[in-house]
Simulated scan of single mutants.
Amino acid sequence: MSTLTQEQRKELQQALLEQREDLQRHFESSMEDGAPAESLKDSTGELSSYDNHPADAGTETFERSRDLAIDDTLTEEFNQVNEALERMDEGRYGTCVTCGKEIPFERLQAIPYTAYCIDDTPSRDVSNDRPVEEEVMTMPPSGAGEVRQRNAGKFDHAEAWEAVEDYGTSNSPAMAAKRDVKDYDENM
């Protein structure tokens, strides 16, 4: 049983109810915009993506995945708020579900829906798991790239233009500084 005072319980209950109401408003406003679309085409409202630049599709994909991630996070928070209100009704609110110790009032003020004391809070670390592809990748052979690194920057010398000029230029006879040029070779 928690040793929260009646006033503290009321304050925390009010905070939970306000938080639940805010989350409900978020979900209601997102539903007014339409239910989450099944496909990217449906979510953008475009009849065809043929005339769009690939970067536009990339931006839309990013925006959609970000919105879905935010909704997932807020759904989890909404569930935690409802569970906290249930614990409050059952008289279990304010005690850690893992160890049974009392959760300090200050922690409950900061995170009213928490079910854990600080010591038993589940880790939210980013996974250190590596991609499965790394299991089949092999290291490059020893010495790979050494010659390229040794010769880096050596081509950039005075004759560089002459070496490139053998392949022609993008200047056409129409772009020549001289008048009446008929041939690409005269253009120079």
Rank of each mutant, 00 (worst) to 15 (best):
R20K: 09
V126F: 00
P54I: 03
K41P: 01
A84T: 01
A57S: 07
L68H: 05
Y50C: 04
M175Q: 14
P140R: 12
A37V: 01
E11P: 01
E134A: 05
D120I: 00
A163Q: 08
K182F: 00
M139L: 15
F155L: 13
T98W: 02
C96D: 04
T114L: 05
V132Y: 02
L108D: 01
M1Q: 03
L40D: 00
L12F: 03
G45C: 13
T59N: 14
D71A: 14
S43W: 07
A158G: 14
S49T: 11
E63K: 15
R148Q: 07
D33H: 11
R66M: 13
D166L: 07
T5Y: 04
E86W: 01
A69S: 11
L4H: 00
D51F: 10
D67R: 13
E63H: 10
I103A: 01
L108P: 04
R148V: 05
F27W: 13
K154S: 14
E162F: 09
T73W: 06
L12Q: 00
Y113N: 01
G91S: 03
G145Q: 10
D129H: 08
R92H: 12
T59P: 07
E77Y: 04
Q6A: 11
T114G: 02
T75H: 04
V147M: 10
L47K: 12
A160L: 08
A84Y: 03
G168H: 07
D166M: 13
R92T: 00
V126Q: 03
L16R: 04
E159I: 11
G143N: 06
A37R: 02
C99W: 08
L68Q: 13
D22K: 11
E28S: 14
E46Y: 02
G153D: 10
E18I: 10
C99E: 12
E11D: 09
F155S: 15
L17N: 05
E7V: 10
S65E: 12
H157D: 13
L4T: 01
E21Q: 14
E133R: 15
R92L: 11
N187C: 03
C99H: 10
Y116M: 01
D56Y: 15
E83P: 00
D42C: 06
T169R: 09
S39T: 15
L108K: 02
L23G: 03
G153T: 08
S170G: 04
W161D: 09
P122M: 00
S30C: 15
D56V: 09
G143Y: 07
G58Y: 12
G94P: 01
E186D: 15
H26Y: 13
Y50R: 15
Q8V: 06
Q19C: 06
D156S: 10
E162A: 13
R87N: 05
A69M: 07
D72R: 13
G45R: 13
A158K: 14
E83K: 08
